[in-house]
Design a protein around this nucleic acid. Structure first.
Lengths: 258, 258
DNA sequence: ATTCACGGTTTACGCCGTTCACTGGTAATA
DNA sequence: TATTACCAGTGAACGGCGTAAACCGTGAAT
């Protein structure tokens, strides 16, 4: 009661951390298929069954890794958002909200390309069968990740209400779902409840647009056409800022992305 | 020389076919991870090593399956395109070219949702490490698949030259790549060489847009917001037809997608 | 009639996730 | 302090995986 964590618990938590770090190393260096219990244990000078003291199964370990990575990505994006928010607006680069969103989207792409294995784990083909209850592990971090983009989006809306479809222009079934979605998200954030359903639609449009561009590039599915898609991504960005009622000049790519 | 296939070769080809069909059944019924040599052999009343008489490795079998599926998808799309081309234009549904493209995109989505396992194999996280030379197996079918969309696109352009970015508006590096891409595709199809680079950019924009929308939905990555994304997809379509200089009214979804 | 190639089997190797019985040391208890 | 209880870790084992090698029977070609 007095001490929330006993000494034992602390060393235990440290081991859990070490396991996940080892797993992470394997993931980034040898890809997702190298993420085996035996490899992790081997790397740590242990045997595979020992890991069962810390994780109930291989899948749960992977899911917790996914949750961690979601957290990292979330804070990386938040950091970029904060620094972009503090940087004074440069001339001709659109409103502050747009600048921030553009910076965050760029960071998202950069992160995806720098961490393709992790990106595949988070956003690629879903792990295993439909909607296990194991999703509980990754659901919350996934939602807080989504909230980064959504927070920026609502902030932008508060300062500059761009054009969105009127509610009666939206298919009734879709409208209901968008309202449910909005009410879902607005738990704890009353500002969201103010958003019109049309804005929710624009948000999803932006997100699918971004997802498509980044995923195609990260998975190499654009290689058949482009070696370096960074300039292409700038078009994606200006398109997205277009939805948001702002223009953002695609910057010329000075050098090919490393 | 006279007989291109001996009797032996024919029965052999039939067996190859049977193996792939069995594999396909396993894939659709139990997902990609059930696609094992032993399971396929078991299903056929054989032993796993026997399959090595027909395929050099598990991966090659999978790749050939992927190639087959690409072929199926391609002809499914072509069939829809043909039937849409023959159907008389209904009032207020835009130009014929747009109608066809919209029909093909809808079919692409429908196919993806009806064949999520196969879709994951074709368009999900890429199999194994970077750019093996095994890609040779899937490259050609992948390209002919792409050519379906690209053919419709060039056809549309021939009849109705929608607005595209001028060459000097496009980042130099991107322009070069787009030209290379166009010249790649125009081998055997001289009409393509006529396309401005801006059109290539629009094409890629459309394709990434479509890919993003369909992939997110097929992978369940939209579930956090929408149960049924069919109405949302109609917005995607009207957006795409917008790039193509045409408007297409999003049709109201009469019933939730099965 | 003999040879030979082919399609299949069995066996085996080294991976994998997972279970279980066991052990040594450490912490809490009597 | 002596004993107990726990707990991290081990080793062996099960079934499944891809794959390699040796082997074998049948049917076609010589």
């Amino acid at each position: 009661m007095s001490h929330p964590l006993s000494r034992r618990d602390r060393v235990r938590a440290a081991t859990v951390q070490e396991i996940k770090q080892t797993a992470r190393g394997l993931l980034v260096e040898q890809g997702p298929e190298a993420l085996t219990l035996r490899a992790i244990a081997r790397e740590m000078g242990m045997t595979a069954p020992a890991l069962y003291r810390y994780f109930d199964s291989h899948e749960i370990l992977v899911r917790q890794l996914v949750a961690d990575i979601f957290g990292e990505l979330t804070s990386a994006l938040r950091a970029v958002a904060d620094s972009a928010a503090q940087r004074p607006a440069t001339s001709g680069s659109g409103s502050k909200g747009t600048v921030i969103i553009v910076a965050v989207c760029r960071e998202f792409r950069r992160w995806a390309l720098d961490h393709t294995a992790e990106y595949a784990l988070l956003f690629g083909t879903p792990i295993r069968g439909r909607r296990d209850r194991l999703d509980e592990i990754t659901d919350r971090p996934g939602r807080t990740f989504a909230r980064v983009f959504f927070g920026l989006f609502t902030e932008l809306w508060r300062h500059h209400q761009f054009a969105v479809p009127a509610p009666d222009e939206i298919d009734a079934g879709l409208r209901d779902q968008l309202e449910r979605f909005r009410d879902d998200l607005s738990a704890g954030l009353p500002a969201i409840a103010e958003l019109p359903v049309g804005a929710m639609l624009i948000f999803l449009r932006c997100w699918t647009r971004l997802y498509g561009a980044v995923t195609m590039e990260a998975f190499g599915h654009l290689k058949f056409a482009l070696d370096d898609a960074s300039a292409m991504f700038e078009y994606t960005l200006s398109e997205m800022t277009g939805w948001l009622g702002m223009t953002y000049p695609p910057r010329q790519s000075s050098a090919p992305a490393g």
